[in-house]
């Protein structure tokens, strides 16, 4: 299976979009080679601004550019793009509803060896709580291209969550990416795994394994965490009666939080949130970290069995 990092797809798409839309400008904070905005810089040096290691000013400058009609994409690692600049995003982007795209790479624990200071596990929570913000978490290169294009079209703030490590291409036959509309990859009867980002691939793998054990499990790619596709969640709860959420993020406040809030209000069923269990990460190779912190297909298999047991109690 072909593997491409979502950040690579981001850089490539941005460079193409720059041709199609002259209002697009790109800002980076001294990480253009890592975030891949360098692809845009190569083609459109006049519309690329390295803001240096000064993320707060990068976001504020983007707000001003947007106020004057530009479509700025701001990129750096997710830990800096959302944590360090939370107030700038809140005050200067989300509150005035400015057309700024925060495209953050190196999200999650698969940053790997750099360790916890660089592994952002709270960004979905931070961005999801902001009014006016759209939160997109594409699962592969194809979804990333679509998400970048969708972000450019949305008139308002968007948070785009991207990863460092190469991930399998799932949508080999293309896809229909509609913001706020979940994609049902597999129909199920016994439970549904609702996943985003890198965990979508693991969810499909888990569903395949569970099928061999006689459990019929659905898989949903929730590429838009906000606005959440409430209907898709409720339908999955109603049709399968048990849900597992899967994200490379803290189990607090992210996709799992959003799904749990939704079913609690609309259609209570057993839910198991798979993600990072309220802890910081550490240095290691990405596969080792996914294993240690409970983010593999095997962990999802166990989680599904648990919710199914709870459902049948």
């Amino acid at each position: 299976m072909e593997k491409i990092a979502t950040r690579v797809a981001y850089g490539k798409t941005l460079a193409v979009l720059g041709e199609e839309n002259r209002d697009i400008v790109v800002l980076d904070a001294d990480l253009a080679k890592s975030t891949k905005t360098i692809e845009f810089k190569k083609k459109f040096p006049d519309r690329f601004f390295d803001m240096g290691i000064a993320e707060a000013n990068m976001v504020g400058t983007a707000a001003g550019l947007a106020a004057a009609g530009k479509i700025p994409f701001c990129s750096t690692f997710a830990v800096f793009a959302t944590g360090r600049t939370y107030d700038q995003i809140r005050q200067s982007v989300a509150y005035p509803r400015l057309n700024v795209k925060i495209a953050a790479t190196h999200a999650g624990i698969t940053v790997g060896e750099d360790g916890s200071s660089h592994q952002m596990l709270e960004d979905i929570a931070l961005m999801r709580v902001l009014p006016n913000m759209t939160v997109l978490v594409p699962s592969d290169a194809v979804a990333t291209e679509a998400a970048v294009r969708a972000a450019a079209k949305i008139k308002g703030p968007v948070y785009l969550r991207l990863g460092r490590s190469a991930v399998p291409v799932l949508y080999t036959g293309g896809m229909d990416f509609n913001v706020g509309k979940a994609i049902r990859l597999r129909r199920g009867k016994d439970a549904t795994i609702i996943a985003c980002g890198v965990m979508v691939g693991a969810a499909l793998e888990a569903a395949g394994e569970l099928a061999q054990e006689g459990l019929n499990v659905g898989v949903i790619d929730m590429h838009t965490v906000k606005p959440l596709d409430v209907d898709a969640v409720v339908v999955a709860a109603r049709e399968t009666g048990a849900l597992v959420t899967a994200e490379e993020h803290s189990i607090i406040g992210g996709l799992g939080g959003a799904v749990a809030e939704t079913v609690a209000e609309h259609y209570p069923v057993p839910v198991k949130r798979v993600g990072i269990e309220d802890t910081f990460g550490e240095s290691g190779r990405p596969p080792e970290l996914l294993q240690k912190y409970g983010l593999t297909a095997a962990h999802l298999v166990a989680a599904v069995k648990e919710v199914v047991r709870r459902k049948n109690r």
Binding site: V25, N57, T61, K70, D87, S92, P96
Partner: peptide, 25 residues
């Protein structure tokens, strides 16, 4: 009102972005 402000320290960045856009255009 050209920019929503109130959290101190942010206006100069926004103003710079507007000035940058003026140069680009």
């Amino acid at each position: 009102v050209e920019m929503s402000t109130g959290s101190l320290g942010q206006g100069l960045s926004a103003a710079s972005g507007m000035a940058l856009a003026g140069k680009l255009d």
